[in-house]
Design a protein around this nucleic acid. Structure first.
Length: 934
RNA sequence: GCGCGCGUGGUGGAAUGGCAGACACGCCAGACUUAGGAUCUGGUGCCGAAAGGCGUGGAGGUUCAAGUCCUCUCGUGCGCACCA
């Protein structure tokens, strides 16, 4: 507890205003067609009918501003100081936009499916829902105590039945769609079936099903997956870091399993191209581009000598084809067994076992040393008919390209290392343009040599020419490859959305899947006693036999969806959170996601609005943000949403480190708990400090001393407004009550707040405050502050905006008389940052002067008047030979001749001018003057 | 290895190519005070008594003028990593 005196009674002020905002639903956002209570401050500013359908359709309704935080996973440990950093930034902007006349959508919710609650359930048997709800309650209390202006009427949790019903519904859309390569978009599966039926007459049901199932955006695959024994589930590639699980750091092994996949690769090109239309940081876009990993090249067919087999390779350097001196297949390549010579069979089998036994981690760690064996088979190089050896090696990945390569050791580092180790021939086919550079292991562009018909061509032309040649001879073709893999979408867990899928057997006894109808949604998970996987290794859902087995003999899918599913579309649900008929209403979605406003959009002025600003951590750079974009694009193709991109502008808030400059962690003991900071300094100081620390995007260390600094600033604001003597009286009265020692536990603590209000009434305004004309100096201080704060808010420069307010207050503290007309706009500037204190002083200011206080959050944002900042006389620096020497005062409109005369006469410049000739004078009007002497 | 970002006082950080260090922390001195870990006033990049000199990781360059632009280099953080 604070041992020093409070700077101001934030402990009474903050609960009071939080309760007021709650009571009047001050931050509720209104949808098109929604009736607005006449007493609501939004109605008072914009009119009760301002959101009528007619006005929205006619673009007469207030412009929308959708500002979103990445919703948190409600963990058992509660909020840490990193969470509120982004939340504070978005709250300040939400309040600023509200004051600017926008209809602001600023919601909050919970990404509440997830592993920790399930692991707790496995240990204790407590249903994850119970754990989750308790955690949500705690998070809600913490978030509300910070005074954020969320529209809580739109709160959602991904674990809500009414929410995941629609997550399942979207899954059905994916299941029942395919990607039409010609139209370059997703289409309903029914169209595919129609086409197929018109082309193939009398196809068997089994054959048609197999065809259709192979085209769905959600499909079943039998491929090897990342299995984590410790977590008892498979993981997506993105969730595996260096061969270990991202969560927990447990070993991950490759294991073939039947899994649900989402065909995100179909969208690789769109996901890549549309990055250019959105305003994200370059580094983030780059991460997504890297992840998608587009590379242009060619596929080339090599004939296996003495057999009819063809090995297809992918290369980005077809121009080096003449230098291909051997080939490598991945150990898993399907032709390995067929082509291997009898005498090499044993060695190849041994190597395959060796490679398969390696975990992903070992593969990465052992990457330094190349391994492989000769198959005994030869291929024919299609350009020159050379016979070259075929090897297998695990430096060639089965999962990329065709799983086979042509090796050009002269111009590829990996092939070079391999050839060196195994004494394979190295043939130069590219000449570096710089003659001094060694051609061995030269991988850049140069000029083709020893390359038949492309010899002499620069690399780019050589590529084009040889690719055309290959296409003519039907030996290969231009190809684009992506690193991006399809999204592994199933998990062997309990606490996730069940798949609305059942399994049946056809006449031949083969299993096939079928989707439940939409009317069967939501599909609830069964109640379990035990949340562990079954002894047979089946997912926990398989334990519920009566849920699992249906009367007609079919069986439910026992996998559940990954945590990412719920976060793929929550931003859409917020626009119409209570809709029971649809995942989101058309009008609401269209208004919040697609209605344009006048603010400039930087990458592309015509880019779609989407969420206007999305703030969250970098940890979601490739996972959530790529998945959500993918779902959004599918929904867009199918006509369910209005824009191709979900998030127009995205900002990653920087990490907050502990006071020791290390990442905060329990083990280091450097975790700062917001509850403690709030108890000692209040929410406003906490918010202000989080923003004052430095630029939002930067990583920066926490420093409690710094909190004290902004806390003192708020204390100065308080003392700028209140009468000191009355404050003493207030403090004495407070000591005799019990309110000094306790803090309101919740915004519903009415007894506390009404007693607090009574106490606060003892505080009077400073006698210097009056309804009087402001002096020019006062107006100038105010308008300089308005200008700076407004511009900085537009540029998300919260730290410098706060510093501008400090400058203003430091000056205002010296004023004897304080005009209302200056203090009120200042409070408006302060309000987004420190809303509780601003509200309290705003109310007091108006009541003291017998005025009705307009709602502060909806009071129009002050405009700065440039004429008030006009200076008739300015100081400009005088330089001699570029070095600063003196300052001269000149009229703002002084001509160059006058400036030159004054500069030459300036006192401190004299010693540097004495005895020298002035050769040149450079004058930048209103900026500086530079005297060049010999 | 590749890609991206960042290097400014004791600290967090400010600076459309034009007076480097706004604002804040810390520190020093003073005022008020029974007291100060409250508040207020002044000071505070480094060297120097001063005049002045030197200063934005380092080295070059462009410019009348560079923390800012260019080249190289070192350090650091993040991301990717046998992706053919």
């Amino acid at each position: 507890m604070a041992s020093s005196r409070r700077q101001y009674p934030f402990h009474l002020i903050e609960p009071k205003w939080q309760q007021t905002w709650d009571a009047q639903q001050a931050f509720r956002a209104f949808n098109p067609g929604e009736e607005i209570p006449a007493s609501h401050p939004f109605a008072i500013r914009h009119g009760a009918d301002s959101m009528s359908r007619e006005k929205v359709a006619g673009r007469k309704a207030p412009a929308k501003y959708y500002i979103l935080d990445m919703f948190p996973y409600p963990s058992g440990t509660g909020l840490h100081v990193g969470h509120p950093e982004g939340y504070t930034a978005t709250d300040i902007l939400a309040r600023y936009r509200r004051a600017g006349g926008f209809n602001v959508l600023h919601p909050m919710g919970w990404d509440s499916f997830g592993l920790p609650a399930e692991q707790y359930a496995v240990k204790t048997g407590q249903h994850p829902r119970v754990t989750t709800e308790a955690n949500i309650t705690n998070f809600t209390r913490q978030i509300k105590s910070l005074g954020f202006s969320y529209d809580w009427s739109r709160e959602l949790a991904t674990t809500d039945v009414e929410y995941f019903k629609w997550t399942q519904w979207i899954f059905l859309k994916l299941y029942n769609s395919y990607f039409d390569a010609e139209k370059n978009c997703a289409r309903p599966i029914s169209e595919l079936i129609e086409n197929r039926k018109s082309q193939i007459y009398n196809e068997s049901a089994e054959s048609l099903r197999a065809f259709v199932d192979s085209k769905r955006l959600a499909y079943v695959s039998e491929a090897p997956v990342n299995w984590c024994p410790e977590l008892g589930t498979v993981l997506a590639n993105e969730e595996v870091i260096d061969g270990k699980s991202e969560v927990g750091g447990f070993p991950v092994i490759r294991k073939p399993m039947r899994q649900w996949m989402l065909r995100i690769t179909a969208y690789a090109e769109k996901l890549l191209a549309d990055l250019d239309t959105i305003d994200w940081s370059d580094s983030l876009k780059e991460m997504q581009r890297n992840w998608i990993g587009r590379s242009e090249g060619a596929e080339v067919d090599f004939l296996v000598a003495g057999s009819g087999e063809i090995i297809r390779v992918f290369t980005t350097r077809p121009d080096t084809l003449f230098g291909a001196t051997y080939m490598v297949l991945s150990p898993e390549h399907k032709l390995v067994a067929e082509i291997t010579a009898p005498e090499q069979m044993q060695a190849v089998e041994d190597y395959k076992r060796f490679a398969a036994g390696k975990s992903d981690l070992e593969r990465t760690e052992l990457a330094k040393e190349k391994t492989g064996v000769f198959t005994g088979a030869y291929a024919i190089n299609p350009v020159n008919g050379e016979k070259i050896q075929i090897w297998i090696a695990d430096y060639v990945l089965a999962s990329y390209g065709t799983g086979a390569i042509m090796a050009v050791p002269a111009h590829d580092t990996r092939d070079f290392e391999f050839a060196k180790k195994f004494n394979l021939p190295i043939l130069q086919v590219v000449q570096p343009n710089d003659a001094k550079t060694d051609w061995q292991n030269f991988t850049d562009d140069g000029t083709a040599v020893n390359s038949g018909f492309i010899t002499g061509l620069p690399t780019p032309e050589a590529k084009t020419k040889i690719t055309l040649w290959l296409e003519e001879k039907n030996l290969g073709k231009k190809t684009i490859n992506y690193k991006l893999r399809d999204w592994l979408f199933s998990r062997q867990r309990y606490w996730g959305e069940p798949f609305p899928i059942i399994w049946k057997k056809d006449a031949a006894g083969n299993l096939y899947h079928e989707a439940l109808p939409e009317s069967a949604l939501p599909l609830l998970p069964p109640t379990l006693e035990d949340y562990k996987p079954t002894p047979g290794g089946e997912p926990p859902l398989a334990r519920a036999k009566d849920w699992l087995n249906l009367p007609d003999g079919s069986v439910r899918e026992t996998n559940t969806m990954p945590q990412w599913a719920g976060s793929c579309w929550y931003y859409l649900r917020y626009t119409d959170a209570k809709n029971a008929q649809s995942f989101v209403g058309k009008d609401a979605e269209n208004y919040w996601m697609a209605s344009p406003d006048s603010r400039p959009r930087t990458p592309d002025p015509k880019s779609t609005p989407g969420v206007d600003l999305y703030v969250g951590g970098t940890e979601h750079a490739v996972l959530h943000l790529l998945y959500a974009r993918f779902w959004h694009k599918v929904l867009f193709d199918l006509g369910h949403v209005s824009t191709p991109e979900p998030f127009y502008k995205l900002v990653n808030q920087g990490l907050i480190l502990g006071e020791d400059g290390q990442k905060m962690s329990k083990s280091r003991g450097n975790v700062v708990n917001p509850d403690d900071v709030l108890a000692e300094y209040g929410a406003d100081a906490f918010r202000l400090y989080e923003m004052f620390m430095g630029p939002l995007q930067d990583t920066k260390p926490w420093n409690t001393r710094g909190v004290e600094g902004v806390y003192r600033f708020l204390g100065r604001v308080w003392r700028l407004f209140v009468d000191e003597k009355s404050e003493t009286a207030f403090e004495q009265a407070e000591t005799t009550s019990d309110l000094g020692s306790r803090r309101s536990e919740s915004a519903e603590d009415h007894a506390f707040t009404s007693a607090a209000a009574e106490l606060l009434d003892l505080i009077l305004l400073d006698g210097g405050i009056a309804d009087m004309d402001a002096t020019p100096a006062q107006l100038k201080a105010l308008h300089a502050c308005i200008k700076k704060v407004t511009e900085d808010l537009d540029g998300l420069r919260f730290n410098t905006a706060i510093s501008a307010m400090m400058v203003f207050v430091n000056e205002a503290m010296t004023w004897q008389s304080k005009p209302l007309s200056v203090l009120k706009p200042f409070l408006q500037l302060l309000a987004p940052f420190a809303p509780h204190l601003a509200e309290e002083l705003w109310a007091r200011l108006h009541s003291t002067f017998g005025q009705m206080a307009p709602s502060l959050p909806y009071a129009p944002w002050p405009k700065f008047d440039p004429s008030l900042l006009f200076e008739s006389e300015i100081e400009i620096p005088v330089q001699v030979n570029g070095k600063f020497r003196d300052v001269i005062k000149v009229a703002v409109d002084a001509d160059n001749a006058t400036i030159e005369v004054l500069a030459k006469a300036s006192e401190k410049a004299q010693p540097f001018l004495a005895g020298k000739t002035i050769k040149k004078v450079i004058i930048v009007p209103k900026k500086m003057v530079n005297l060049i002497v010999a």
